[in-house]
């Protein structure tokens, strides 16, 4: 069956593709997302079925795998509560600082959120690597910047803008394009001292891919491998604050400046191997004032 045999049309099509390739994103963004959703739509049922097969072939690395369902659910609930507790503790510390200063008034954090369970239906194995496609979108209230967690408290990324009604893209936390992330290292509660002896330390992490993030510290005193690392970045949504990024994998000195320390943080969940995630969707009406918790210029910090 002849398709388009004219050489001239082929050359014109190639020239058109070259022109499209040269156009900036702003020229394509008004229509390209809709067209991509239309092109992807026929593949969704097959891809969903194949994703199920993929999970049978290679089990996703979910927390507490292998435990009975009720025990796993109980532990996830516990982790979720722990995550909320961590977030509240950070908030209390912040309020205490503010009370000490009494330098100004800041509206209370009233941002509400609701969990929305989603299935990972697509992984960007090609380019750009690492973006995850999930099966919920703006119809379910998902919006850009919403944090994505697994196991109740382990944050794995955030929603990128540009999703569709029933499809969204997740930028994993270890993706270099996520930009710098402010985090808090909380030493492990050791023995009797418990929380009283805990002294958290601020660190700015740079994603390195492959589940790792690295950060520089003025001093390594009090930081040990195994310490928890929590997200504490004002640029992220309040629902993401205090969520657990991972644990300190290694501690060392900077080659370039041995007086400064370098820590490597390993995410507890591998974004490339999760199959189900929870999006902390912002609830309208109770939301924070416009502008709070927003990243001014995207990831370019």
């Amino acid at each position: 069956m002849p398709f388009v045999s004219s050489r001239r049309i082929l050359v014109i099509a190639l020239a058109g593709a070259a022109l499209l390739s040269a156009l900036p994103q702003s020229s394509q963004s008004p229509w390209s997302g809709t067209l991509a959703a239309i092109l992807w739509a026929p593949l969704v049922p097959g891809a969903s079925a194949l994703a199920w097969v993929r999970d049978r072939i290679r089990a996703p690395s979910e927390p507490y795998q292998g435990l009975p369902e009720d025990l796993r659910s109980a532990r996830e609930d516990r982790d979720q509560l722990q995550g909320e507790l961590d977030a509240r503790q950070l908030r209390i510390e912040e309020l205490e600082r503010e009370l000490r200063d009494i330098s100004g008034f800041r509206p209370a954090d009233r941002a509400g959120w609701q969990p929305r369970r989603a299935t990972v239906v697509e992984r960007g194995g090609g380019r750009p690597a690492g973006l995850l496609g999930i099966d919920i979108g703006t119809n379910q209230g998902v919006g850009e910047g919403d944090p994505v967690v697994v196991g109740g408290k382990q944050i794995i990324g955030e929603i990128a803008s540009g999703g569709a009604e029933n499809r969204s893209w997740v930028i994993p936390l270890d993706d270099r394009r996520c930009g710098r992330i402010d985090a808090i290292v909380t030493p492990q509660a050791s023995g009797k001292g418990g929380n009283a002896a805990r002294q958290s330390m601020l660190v700015q992490l740079v994603p390195q891919g492959n589940r790792t993030l690295v950060g520089e510290l003025e001093s390594l005193a009090g930081v040990n491998p195994g310490d928890s690392v929590l997200l504490g970045d004002a640029g992220w949504r309040p629902a993401a604050q205090g969520m657990r990024i991972g644990v300190v994998e290694s501690v060392g000195k900077l080659d370039a400046n041995p007086l400064r320390g370098r820590i490597t943080v390993r995410m507890e969940s591998d974004p490339a191997r999760v199959s189900r995630v929870v999006v902390k969707v912002r609830v309208t009406g109770e939301g924070q004032p416009q502008g709070q918790g927003a990243r001014g210029a995207g990831a370019a910090k």
Binding site: Q28, L131, G162
Partner: peptide, 23 residues
């Protein structure tokens, strides 16, 4: 269509589908 690029967004990096490079 399957590999969106990342651009600058308001709240978060924006996933923008750029047609042409893979073609």
């Amino acid at each position: 269509a399957m590999h969106p690029a990342l651009g600058v967004g308001i709240d978060a990096p924006r996933a923008v589908v750029v047609f042409g490079p893979h073609v």
